[in-house]
Design a protein around this nucleic acid. Structure first.
Length: 165
DNA sequence: ATGGTTGCAAGGCAA
């Protein structure tokens, strides 16, 4: 089974690319981020025509995630992470595809750091870790895929052309 | 040369 993750930066603006890639690469499961479309603008029909069932959580203007499954209908099992009832963003959607739990996440951009957005990101990571442990203990096969927005090192400085570290 | 990109959506914002 092949599982892919794709930050589409606008699913409707990128639909031709997305469908073309689905036909060419034929991944079994795809986690999409940055749909930049509300629920009712999700191109369900076009994706179905391409052979994919989907669950999605749209959002106006930015963010938004979806899980696609080739020749299958994902069943949504969760929307948002547990641990903070006041969190209205919680960019996480989860679906079951033929016995596999698929968690699609779009980890919050923490910029600028330090700051409240960075604090939120760290708290969200803690909630993700905690929930991942729960998922592990459940015993069912599971995958967490998506845009983690995390780097192991500083970015390349394009002026210096030297990788830090 | 105080600059450059993209998408959504209709001005500005987020990435």
């Amino acid at each position: 089974m092949r599982i892919a993750s794709y930050n589409v930066n606008g699913i409707n603006g990128r639909l031709a690319n997305l469908v073309g890639w689905l036909q060419e690469a034929a991944p079994d499961i795809v986690c999409l981020q940055e749909l930049k479309a509300p629920d009712d603008k999700f191109p369900e029909a076009a994706l179905r025509a391409a052979g994919y069932g989907a669950v999605w959580h749209g959002q106006k203007s930015w963010n938004g995630m979806a899980i696609l499954a080739r020749g299958a209908e994902p069943v949504e099992t969760r929307r948002g992470l547990p641990g903070d009832p006041d969190d209205t963003h919680s960019p996480y959607i989860e679906g079951a595809v033929e016995g596999l739990m698929v968690g699609c996440l779009y980890l919050p951009n923490g910029n600028p750091a330090p700051g409240p957005k960075f604090d939120y990101k760290l708290r969200w990571l803690e909630r993700l870790t905690s929930y991942a442990e729960t998922l592990l203990k459940s015993g069912s096969p599971a995958v967490l895929a998506g845009d983690f927005n995390v780097m192991p090192t500083d970015l390349l400085d394009p002026k210096s052309r030297v990788f830090p570290g």
